[in-house]
């Protein structure tokens, strides 16, 4: 199935030609896409948009430190096994370790249904978990010792996202197509804001983008405002009034754009410098 810009736009996702081409090739080559980029640049939303565009179910695995293979493949239902023993249903112990007593979890579900599998923030997971994914993403099969190797009935479209908390292994990178999503340029960001807030004044959009980009271009801001935060900022200005974007009042709203004390400190310095200049 081909994916084009229009299909993604229908899902309220403004994609450039590069993103569309990578998505399309990944779908047709049946390769996972590894999407990296600063937070809030549309990595997760891309997976949602692909799911919408291809009309497939979105299955999400949110990674965190300590996530295990059992939590994403599945595990044996001990209560059910115990119950079976008590009822004298299965006398042979091997009968208890069959698919009947196995609870399928997201990865196995994704391999059995036409779906888009989003493995979100893979960099937060441990290296052991990442190594376990190699088989699933490279061969589209899962090995459970008691059940054997389970090949995928439907190969899912896999989207892996990473924020760079930790370096992803070369083995995983090699199995994926790489896409780096950076902050959008002025024109694209304008389109994104207008898509989300159609009633917004164009002059105000320009001012918002100029302010946000000033913060993004600063070397001192560690976590620059994301696209999502820019939209929140625009919504806040729609409620409070346009005067809050002026240098005298903007510091009251920097909390919407920046979320750490260090960044606030730098942003206030930067914005107050602008006003004195």
């Amino acid at each position: 199935m081909m994916i084009n810009q229009e299909m993604l736009k229908e899902q309220h996702y403004i994609a450039d030609q590069q993103t569309t081409t990578v998505t399309d090739i990944a779908t047709r080559l049946e390769k996972p896409i590894l999407v990296e980029g600063p937070p809030g640049t549309g990595k997760t939303t891309l997976a949602k948009a692909i799911a919408g565009a291809t009309q497939k179910q979105l299955i999400r695995i949110q990674c965190y430190e300590g996530i295990t293979a059992e939590q994403v493949i599945g595990e044996f239902n001990y209560s059910k096994q115990l119950l079976a023993i008590q009822m004298g249903k299965n006398t042979d112990i091997n009968d208890l370790f069959t698919a009947e007593y196995f609870i399928n979890r997201p990865l196995l579900i994704a391999m059995n249904t036409p779906s888009v599998l989003l493995i979100d923030e893979i960099d937060r997971a441990d290296e052991e978990f990442e190594a376990f994914l190699l088989e699933a993403l490279g061969e589209f099969q899962i090995t459970v010792p008691e059940l054997g190797t389970i090949p995928a009935k439907h190969k899912p479209i896999v989207v892996l996202t990473s924020n760079g908390t930790r370096e992803i292994s070369h083995a995983l990178r090699r199995r994926s197509l790489y896409l780096y999503l950076d902050y959008p340029d002025t024109l694209k960001e304008k389109q994104i804001i207008q898509t989300h807030i159609p009633q917004i004044d164009l002059m105000l959009v320009d001012k918002i983008i100029r302010t946000v980009q000033r913060l993004r271009n600063s070397d001192k801001i560690a976590n620059p405002p994301s696209v999502a935060e820019t939209i929140e900022f625009a919504k806040a200005l729609m409620i409070l009034g346009e005067e809050f974007i002026e240098p005298e009042k903007i510091t009251q709203l920097t909390g919407i754009l920046l979320k750490t004390a260090s960044d606030h400190y730098e942003a206030n310095k930067l914005l107050s410098k602008q006003s004195t200049n």
């Binding site: 081409t21 990578v22 090739i25 990178r173 790489y178 896409l179």
Partner: peptide, 17 residues
């Protein structure tokens, strides 16, 4: 599109991209 395809296949990180 060919350029993007080569780029996405051979790049492994932001710098290479």
């Amino acid at each position: 599109e060919i350029k993007t395809a080569i780029k996405t296949i051979i790049s492994k990180n932001k710098e290479e991209f």
